[in-house]
Design a protein around this nucleic acid. Sequence first.
RNA 1: GCGAGAGUGGCGAAACUGGCAGACGCGCAGGACUUAGGAUCCUGUCCCGCAAGGGGUCCGGGUUCGACUCCCGGCUCUCGCACCA
Length: 834
Amino acid sequence: MTPPQRPDPAFAELPGYDPATVERTWQDRWAAASANRTDIPGGARPYYALMMFPYPSAEGLHVGNLFAFTGNDIFARFQRLRGHDVFEPIGFDAFGIHSENHALKVGIHPTELIPRNIANFTRQLGRAGLMVDWSRVVDTTDPAYYKWTQWVFLQLYKRGLAYRKAAAVNWCPNDKTVLANEQVENGLCERCGAKVEQRFLEQWFFRITDYAGRLLANLDGLDWSQTTKTAQRTWIGRSDGAEIRFRILNPLEDAGSAAVHVTAEVVTGTREVTVFTTRPDTIFGATYLVLAPEHPLVDAIVSAEQAEAVAAYRARTAAQDLVTRKSSREKTGAFTGAYAVNPATGEMIPVWIADYVLMEYGTGAIMAVPGHDERDFEFATVFRLPIERVVAGPGEDARTPLAAAYVDNAAGRLVNSGRFDGYGVDEARTAITAWLEEHHAAKPVVNYRLHDWCISRQRYWGPPIPIVYCDACGPVPVPEQDLPVLLPNIPDFRPDDSGVSPLARHEEWFRVPCPQCGAAARRETDVSDTFLDSGWYFLRYPSVGHDDVPFDAAITGKWLPVDSYIGGNEHAVLHLMYARFLTMVLHDAGHLGFEEPFTKFRAHGLIIRDGAKMSKSKGNVVNPDEYIEKWGADTFRTYLMFLGPFEEGGDFRDAGISGVRRFLDRVWASVHAARTDGAPDPDVIRKLHQTIRKVGEDIPKLQYNTAIAAMMEYMNTLRRGERIPHRAEVEPLLPLVAPFAPHAAEELWATCGHAKSIFDSGWPAFDPALAEGDTMTVAVQVNGKTRGSVTVARSAGEAEIVAMARADGQIGKFVPEQPKKVIYVPGRLLNFVG
RNA sequence: GCGAGAGUGGCGAAACUGGCAGACGCGCAGGACUUAGGAUCCUGUCCCGCAAGGGGUCCGGGUUCGACUCCCGGCUCUCGCACCA
C-alpha cells in the first residue's frame, strides 16, 4: 500500500500530515538550537543513556542497528521528559578486522573508506531523529582517541597485567596470513579454502583471569538481563575441585614391568604429574592419566619404545587448526610408555597423551575416570583401557556393569573405594580431598575457564601496541608523553607471509631508539584488538574535548557509571566482560571511583527477516533509507517498536507499517480538529489517565509495543462515533507520543501554542483517582465457567454483586440455588461453586 | 552434549501476583463516501452451531473453585557455549 494522499475527509480543510516537511523542519531547528547538546558540566540531574556504538560498514546503517538505537532513544527521551539531563552519545567503532577486510575487498585504503562510511552513518542517524549529542562523537580511529587506548594498555602494563607469551593462531598457508576463528570454516580458510594450520607466535595478553573471581562475584549486584548474566557466568566458568599429584615411575626401570601393585617404598622416580579434577571422589576409579600433547613433561617421561609414536601424534595435533581440534569429538591419543601411581589405590596406571585434554585449562593433565566421565569412557573404549565403577546409583551395586559413564552425582554413593564406600558424592569429594591433602598429594583449587585476553593482532587497521623492543632493555613501554604511537599511512596494508603485521615491512616506521637507553630498537608491529578500543569508549564520551586526559575526573565522577546501557546480546560475553575488566583495573589504579561501568544493561532482541537474523552475511538486510523516505522517520521508528517486545525483537515485514502511519495521521488530525469550547468528556479523561499510567509504566520496562497499543486504544476511544475531541483530551497525549514520534509530537505541541520544546515540558501528571472512575466491572463465573459480567458501583460489596448476578437474565439461570461456596476476588471476579 | 529462552487466531502479538484468552495492529469480509478507490470513515472477524450451547493457548497427566500462567512427563523451535576434566 502507499501512504495516504489525502487527509480524512471530515477534516479535509485542515493541514495534512506531511512527515518529510515536519521532520526536516525540526531536525534543522533542533540542530540550530543545539537542543540535543547535553549540559555536561552544569546538568543537575545527569542521566547517561548509552547504546553500543556501531562499526561504520560500507553498506550503511541497517534496520537492526536502527531498531537498537531507536529503543535507546525512546528510553532517553522519556527520561528527559521526566526531567533528567540526558546524555545520549554515539560514536564509531571503526578500527578492526571487519573494516580492514572490507577495505581489502574493495581495494580502497581504510583511511579513505572509513571517513566516507562515517559520513554516511551520520547522515542516516540524523534522519532517524535520534536525540544524539553530536558535539561529543567518538571515533576510535582518531589519534586523539587511540592515544588514550594506548594509554590504557600502558596502565595494564604498569600493573603487571600485560605480558607476552607464545600462543597458537590460525594460519592460512595459501593467503599466508593469520585468521580469526570466525574466518575458519570446517578447518578451511573461508576466503581461499586452503587447509588452515596452527602456528605459534609471541603475543600480548591481559591477565583478565586475575579478575575472574571479582568479575563473577560482582554480577550479583548488577541490574542486567538475566540471560546476559548467565552467559557471563558460563563464560567465566568457575569450577571447584582439587589438584592431585601423581608420581611417575621411572620408565627406564619400570618399562615392561608386569607388576600391578607397587608400594610407595618401591617408587624411586621423583617426577610427578599434577592433574586438576572436579571429581576427587572418583579417584579410586582413575585407571590412567592423560596429558595434553604439548605438555612439557611429555619429553621427560616418554619411553624409548613409545618415542616415535608419541612424536608422530604430537606432530599431527600440532598441525591441526584450532577450530577442528576443538570441535572434533573422535578420541585419539598415544601411550607414553610411562606409568604413574594412583595415590588412593597404589596401583600402577598408564600415562597417555591425547588432544581431548587441553593445555590451556587446569594443569594440562587429567586423571581419567572412565566409569564416571563420558569423555574418558569413550577414550577407554577406543584404547581398551580398564573401566571401573566407583559410584553406584539407586538399585546398583559395586558389581553392576557400566554400559556408559555414570555421572549422576546427586544420587550416587561410593563403591570400590576402600574406607569411603557408602559416602555420597558430595561428602566424598570433601573427605577424599582432605585425606589426600594429609598425605600431601592434593589441595583444593578453583579453576576458571576464562582465558587471558590476547590483544595482539597481526594486522594493520588498529592502534599500534605502544612497546619498543631493545636488545639491551627488553620490551620497553613507550613513555606516556610520547603517545600516540601513530599508525602510519602505508599503501600496502595487505597482510603477507611474514606472520606479523604489515607494519613490519616498514623499517622507517619501526626503527626507533630505545626510550630507555637510546640504542637502536624496534617497535612492536602488531596492533591491538578492536575490543580494547570498545572496552573504554563510554569513559571518553562525556570528556570529549578534554584532550589532555583520557577522561576528566570531575565529569566522570558526575556522569558515570552509565545509568542505562542497551545493546546486542552478541556482546554479552566479550565486549561486556572486557569493559568490566578494564574498568576494574582503572579503578584499582586509582583512575576511577567505581569498578562496574554499567549499572543497568538490557539486551535488545534481534530483527528477523525471512526466518533468519538480519545480517550482512545472510544478505537479508533492509536499508532504512527507503522506508524513512516513504513513510517518515516517526512512523518507521514507531513501527519498529510495535513489532514485538523490544527485548525479544521481531519479524520484519512491511505489512503492518500502514497501521502505525494511520495512528499518527489520526493523532495529527485530532489535534488540528480539536475543539476548545465546552468541557472534556469525563469518561475520555479517565481513559486518558489510564493511558498515561500504562505508557509511563511500560517505557521503563522497554515494553514499547504495549505502550503503543495503549495509545492506539486511547485514540480509538477519543474518536469513537466520529466525535470531535476536546483539546484537553488530546494535548496530554502528545508527550506520550513524543519519545516514539519526536518530530510530529514537537510540531503538534507547537500547534497547541507552546513556545518551549515538548521535551522540556515534562511528563503529564497522572491522577490515580481520575484513572479509577466510580464503577467497576466484575466477571461472573459458575463452577469456573464465565457466564457474564456485572457493572456495579466501586463501593459495592460481595452481597450486592451476588444479588446483581442472580438478577441478571443471562447469568442468573446458571446460578445454583444453594451454592457450596462463593469466591469473590474484589473488583475482578465472582465465582459460584455449586 | 551443556546452558538459556520460546511454542496462543490467517499473520505480528496481548493477558497484572493463578481470576472475563486473543487487547493493539496487519490481513480479510460487508457497508458509507465516491467517476474511481489500493485513500478515508463505519461494522464484523478464534473454531463448530440457525440458535441455545459447546470446544479452544504444542501434546499427555496433575494441583486448584478457577491454569496461557504452577507441578510432573514428552515433542518442536530459536539463541549461546561446545572435549573446560
